[in-house]
Computed example of a mutant assay.
Amino acid sequence: MDRPRNVGGADRVLRGVLGVWLSVVAVAAYLDDRRVTALVSAVAGAGLLQNAATGFCGCNAALGIDTTTDADDE
């Protein structure tokens, strides 16, 4: 199923950067034996990276938010 994109531009870049940062936090928390922090950070980071990679966010869809523009489709 091909979902329409609703994440684009600066929003997509920001989600990618935050996703990577949260993944680093998850590894650091895991190494520091903070399992709950590691799990929460890893799940949030993976979700943001998925949004950045696919250009689709389920929460945006539910709220009717679309940050794409016609220039993003080129």
Rank of each mutant, 00 (worst) to 15 (best):
F56T: 09
M1N: 13
R35A: 07
A28E: 12
V43F: 15
L63T: 02
G64N: 13
G19F: 03
T67I: 02
T68L: 05
G16H: 04
A53F: 07
A28R: 15
S41D: 05
L31M: 13
G9S: 09
L49K: 08
P4M: 04
D72T: 07
V17C: 07
L39R: 04
A42F: 06
L31R: 14
G58H: 05
G19W: 00
A46F: 11
V36A: 15
D33Q: 14
C57I: 12
R35G: 03
V36P: 06
D70T: 10
D11C: 13
R3M: 03
V24I: 11
Q50V: 09
R15L: 07
E74H: 12
V20Q: 01
A29W: 00
D72W: 08
N6I: 01
N6D: 01
D73P: 05
M1Y: 11
R15A: 13
A44W: 04
G16Q: 03
V17I: 14
L22F: 14
D32R: 06
V17P: 03
C57M: 02
L18P: 07
A10V: 13
P4D: 04
G64E: 08
G16F: 04
R3P: 00
C57R: 10
T69F: 01
L48H: 14
R5S: 13
G9W: 05
A26M: 14
G55F: 07
G64R: 01
A26H: 08
A26E: 06
V24L: 08
V36G: 07
L48C: 08
G16V: 05
D11G: 11
A38H: 01
L31H: 08
T68E: 05
R5G: 02
L31P: 06
L39S: 06
R12F: 03
D2S: 11
T54F: 01
D33M: 11
M1G: 15
A71H: 08
G16K: 06
D32G: 04
L31W: 05
A10R: 09
A28M: 15
A53Q: 07
M1T: 10
R3A: 05
V7Y: 03
A62G: 09
G16Y: 03
G19E: 02
V13T: 12
A71R: 12
L48W: 13
D11A: 14
D66K: 04
G8N: 02
S23Q: 04
R15K: 12
A61Q: 02
G45P: 02
C57L: 13
A52Q: 06
V36C: 03
T68K: 06
N51Q: 12
G58P: 12
D72F: 09
R34F: 01
C57W: 05
G47C: 11
A10S: 14
R35W: 10
C59G: 12
L22C: 08
T54L: 10
L14A: 15
R34H: 02
A46D: 03
I65Q: 02
G19Y: 03
D11W: 10
D72G: 09
Q50P: 00
N51W: 07
M1E: 13
A29I: 08
T69L: 00
V27Y: 07
A71Y: 04
T37V: 15
F56I: 04
D70S: 14
A38Y: 01
T37I: 13
V24C: 06
R12M: 03
V7L: 00
G64T: 00
